[in-house]
């Protein structure tokens, strides 16, 4: 191998490894209601009305379900996605973990919030880049 060939090979190797990178990206789903778990502390069961609920959360529900018993359920959904990856130009790995949550508010026939439940899937989302295995 001549010195010129060795130089070319070294340059190629440097380029391949120099261009490699780690990738991180984060996406919020329905960012308007992202701080919902914090805001929800202002909701008082048996007191807060449906109108007040919308003021507290700063947005209308994404959908309203009707229970067979006639009770209404206001559904807000939100979440977070974390993607991490290793980019080696000729071989790339990425793993995306996504947590989709719902906050459900149970509203009686007098339009008062009687109970609520808030999901926490998006709080347990980890950064992982290795896509293989479980």
């Amino acid at each position: 191998m001549t010195s010129l060939q060795a130089l070319r090979l070294s340059a190629f190797a440097l380029l391949a490894f120099g261009a490699s990178a780690c990738t991180f990206s984060r996406t919020y789903i329905n960012p308007k209601t992202l701080d919902l778990p914090e805001r929800v502390k202002q909701v008082e069961k048996g007191r807060t009305t449906a109108a007040e609920l919308q003021q507290i959360l700063g947005a209308p529900p994404h959908s309203i379900l009707r229970a067979p018993s006639g009770e209404k359920v206001y559904l807000y959904s939100y979440g977070e996605t974390k993607t991490a990856g290793l980019t080696l130009v000729v071989f790339n790995l990425t793993k995306t973990n996504s947590g989709i949550d719902a906050a459900l508010f149970f509203v009686d026939d007098k339009d008062v919030v009687t109970d609520y439940t808030v999901g926490d899937n998006s709080r347990h989302i980890h950064w992982e880049w290795w896509p293989f295995g479980d």
Binding site: G85, L93, T94, K95, T96, S98, G99
Partner: peptide
């Protein structure tokens, strides 16, 4: 490229 997405 190998990529994997898991929801919840």
């Amino acid at each position: 490229t190998f990529s994997r997405t898991v929801v919840n």
